[in-house]
Design a protein around this nucleic acid. Structure first.
Lengths: 129, 129
DNA sequence: CGTTCCATTGACGTTAACGTCAAGAGGATT
DNA sequence: AATCCTCTTGACGTTAACGTCAATGGAACG
């Protein structure tokens, strides 16, 4: 009952393309078993894909993600690895917060520009009356 | 007195490579004048490059930046242009705010992950005592 | 049995923002 | 004159994460 999924079912379940899954396999992020030449994705593959997609939303590269998954596999029960993973996540959090701060500044500046633009348009409209 | 800079001086002043400046010219972000075949960067080019680099720090693509600079150039022409520019700027603002919202979600999720990781580490530490 | 459908591998295409030669022109220096 | 230095244009290389064919092979359907 270890429900394995075909590539199509997998794509539908996770909203990705077949190309993506084959690419992830080639990059050693997934390890579907083979039935003849067809791929069958196991529960483990689904768990990994969930983590992969989440990692991508966090802005990690596939290579980063592969390393994190490997670490987890090798010694997910070692405190040292856990601490390292924890540190990586914190670094990324800081990067994201810095990025948000810069974005806030840019948004504020752009708002000023827009306000000036609105003023100029108002001036033109008045002049046209 | 309109102090123009050679490509080298420009590179030193802004910490970029010659390739970068030629690339920006090709992409119509800069318009250095020519003295024979050599480029001379004017005050205007320096002002634009300053904006380009700042835009990049904010995570804009060069194409985004080019549009913003063009927008800037056209300011003050006709009311029609102004209104269109205004619309562009507003679109850009909405995009940026959407991006900020996504970033906020990602940050929140990552914080949860980190909290869980911290809990696991804490558990390990206790177990090790 | 022929056609359709889903899958496979392999290979080349794509975008962004430059990096990295290659080959040559034009001054300045020795 | 020989060499050096800076600049030029042109063209191909690079990275990430896939997209897009092309050729092929079983399996299912009518």
């Amino acid at each position: 009952m270890t429900e394995t999924l075909s590539i199509r079912a997998m794509c539908d379940a996770f909203d990705v393309t077949p190309r993506t899954l084959r690419f992830y396999e080639q990059k050693e992020l997934l390890f579907p078993i083979r039935q003849g030449s067809h791929r069958l994705f196991t529960k483990r593959d689904r768990a990994r894909l969930t983590l992969i997609l989440r990692g991508k939303r966090f802005g990690f590269s596939l290579e980063d993600i592969r390393q994190l998954l490997d670490m987890y596999d090798r010694d997910g029960s070692s405190e040292g690895q856990l601490v390292r993973t924890f540190g990586l996540a914190q670094d990324r959090l800081h990067q994201m917060e810095a990025q948000r701060a810069e974005l806030d500044v840019a948004i504020a500046e752009l708002k000023v520009e827009i306000a000036q633009g609105a003023a100029m348009i108002a001036a033109f409209s008045k002049a046209a009356e």
